[in-house]
Design a protein around this nucleic acid. Structure first.
Lengths: 154, 154
DNA sequence: TATTGTTATACTCTATAACTATA
DNA sequence: TATAGTTATAGAGTATAACAATA
């Protein structure tokens, strides 16, 4: 699937092996960029970046999600979380709701429109994920996920 | 090693498991950010970002490196490669040399100063890489590298 | 004319500081 | 006063277009 993203003959040149090729951080970066690229092509018609898609998924699956919790889950700064939600709210995909009892906490919720867009996008995302599994094999994919988790989980 | 990068009690809260946790692309991104963070802390005193370090390593190990080849190896755009080299040249870490015979191609070379900085930085980078291997085990690290390469190699 | 290198520029992502509002 | 949310802003990283120089 990554080959398909190349756009010119020049880009199709096989990359040379070089002294950074066996650096884990380097390989990690290259793989992440390639996978995000494929993700973005999959969801281009819905105008959903990976972070935006993640927000919709989380709001669909979880209740009682406030800014702080969302920012912690996605490991982004609360300030950037607000900007992200602003964009999604402008598109009527999510809403901010003050809790009636406190007037304080702001509950984030998926709108019906957001739910609809998420369903459509998820079809494409699922196909994207299947491409990854096809590349790695089911066992390879599971193993990769486990190894990646070891790198950032406490 | 990632735990050590946390700076406040709030950040030390264990991240919740959530619906994106089993997405490969998501895990890939999280791991890449964590590893780059550790890399940057390791090389902070040398003011070397991962891309800059990569350039120095490649120029140390390879001959006949021109902009185009370097950009292809690092999968960056030639325009951004020029900017990157500008910064390293201003710091006298690399030089641009016109080939005397052709007056055309520009050969990139590591200066003595660049070589010296690279040696010092590499000590820290090696320690960083050892931390990754300690986390994953030698076998896990090798496996991870192999799986990552499957994701972006043709 | 095609290739290589370069500049300018714009857009996204991320980080910090400072402000508001509520407990 | 502490916490949650927000705005403004600055800094990387990356993309494209346009230009210069050379084959």
């Amino acid at each position: 699937m990554i080959v398909a993203t190349k756009q010119s003959a020049a880009e199709d040149l096989v990359d040379e092996v070089h002294p950074m090729s066996d650096h884990l951080g380097y390989a990690l970066r290259r793989a992440q960029v390639a996978v995000f690229q494929d993700f973005c092509e999959s969801t281009a018609s819905f105008d959903l970046r990976p972070a935006e898609y993640s927000v919709l998924v989380i709001l669909k699956e979880m209740t009682d999600v406030r800014h702080n919790r969302l920012a912690r889950m996605l490991e982004i700064k609360p300030a950037n979380c607000a900007t992200l939600i602003n964009k999604l709210e402008e598109r009527s995909l999510v809403t901010r709701e003050k809790l009636p009892v406190s007037g304080r906490a702001i509950l984030l919720r998926l709108t019906r429109e957001g739910d609809s867009l998420l369903r459509q996008a998820t079809k494409q995302v699922d196909a994207h994920r299947q491409r990854l599994r096809d590349r790695l094999g089911d066992e390879g994919a599971a193993q990769l996920l486990r190894l990646l988790n070891q790198l950032y989980q406490n």
